[in-house]
Design a protein around this nucleic acid. Sequence first.
DNA 1: ATAATAGTGTCTCTTAGACAATATTTC
DNA 2: GAAATATTGTCTAAGAGACACTATTAT
Lengths: 234, 234
Amino acid sequence: MKGYDARDFPPVAVTVDLVVLTIRADRLSTLLVRRGGPPYQGRWALPGGFVHPDEGLAAAAHRELAEETAVGAPAVHLEQLGSYGEPRRDPRMRVITVAHLVLAPDLPAPVAGSDAAAARWCPLAELEPGKLAFDHRQILADGLERARFKLEYSPVATAFCPPEFTVAELRRVYEIVWGVGLDPRNFHRKVTGAAGFLAPVGRTTTRDGGRPAQLFRRGDATVLRPPMLRPASS
Amino acid sequence: MKGYDARDFPPVAVTVDLVVLTIRADRLSTLLVRRGGPPYQGRWALPGGFVHPDEGLAAAAHRELAEETAVGAPAVHLEQLGSYGEPRRDPRMRVITVAHLVLAPDLPAPVAGSDAAAARWCPLAELEPGKLAFDHRQILADGLERARFKLEYSPVATAFCPPEFTVAELRRVYEIVWGVGLDPRNFHRKVTGAAGFLAPVGRTTTRDGGRPAQLFRRGDATVLRPPMLRPASS
DNA sequence: ATAATAGTGTCTCTTAGACAATATTTC
DNA sequence: GAAATATTGTCTAAGAGACACTATTAT
């Protein structure tokens, strides 16, 4: 069983798929492409494609992201989400896909790729569950759950914000991704008190109205201790 | 780039590798096999093997585990850890491996597989870092970090225990995996107070000496809220 | 009785959450 | 001034950690 001769086995293809989450007009949205050919022709799907011969998995994910959104690597958070390889998830052949999760600030309109007839940002609330191709409904659900969970114990929420942001803008990220309301005063105290979460820029902005708010950049912490606690409801 | 014709690409092989963690003689240990052929002949490696044509990823991981340890699925915790696919991680051909993490109670001695010259439980403290084949040092490190982290917010620590266990035995799991000492009294209060973590069996045991201890089974919670907090040191 | 481990109670300190109060802007 | 948002302060309840104390077994 471990002869390591690939010719003993039928062909396998390896792809990367992307769950790209962003916040547009106060709604959590994901990037979808409409499939231009069979199977699932005309259905919406997660963006993705083959891993090239001399390319690592993360590199393939970054390349696909750039092809679809013209967004460079440094501006977003990208992490591996998990691999999906049920034998018949693609009716044509054995395809194992390595899904990646991307958290990004509000990005420009997407670019339709060569194989995709169209691409768009779809608010998650408007997505009919059964409408995605392949097992992409499950992958999207897993990505959303991962994002919600990571907001608790890591500073990735800042990936949804522009490079400089206010506490209120960061709070809106938590409220939208978690679907809850948070007390602005307690949130402010907690987030500014968490070591390494935020680095003050030293300037202020009034773009949200009212009293000027401090601008922050993301700090250098990789983990939040203690974590941000999601209200008990969910 | 998305023609979905596998013949456009050179062959790729997909394997599963296993990070199997258990506690033997109060030491955290992992299952290793000695490689019987090149490359890395004679070196220790994580157990693993090819994904079969009609087999899902989790099924392949369970099969490899059973081949190596003669352990059935229900007794252990198995989850996908992540995929590793740097282009030249295997010198022979492009191999993408889907690593899985297994947490198991103390198991019998391993069985050498067909391709492995030998198999053994290796205490992590005795493992020389540079001695593992391929990128298995990194995979093992990632698995260990995942296990340490999951002990905080999930009840997986019970996977290291036999079906019925005492609070003290569970505490030893935390102490050994985290490498810290925990106060038995506070631990007891916390773990018995966490909803769904433990289900009392109603019987007691004196196998640890002293006053008889309540026996527990794992409860039905999948997440611990609030989490078990690891002491600040690390 | 002594040793060993199990389990409970109590105290203090920190933190979460509710919410009052103050500060600084625009209109 | 009125409205809006930012930020600080105060109170209370819950939980973490330190540790005294009691309980139940084996020898």
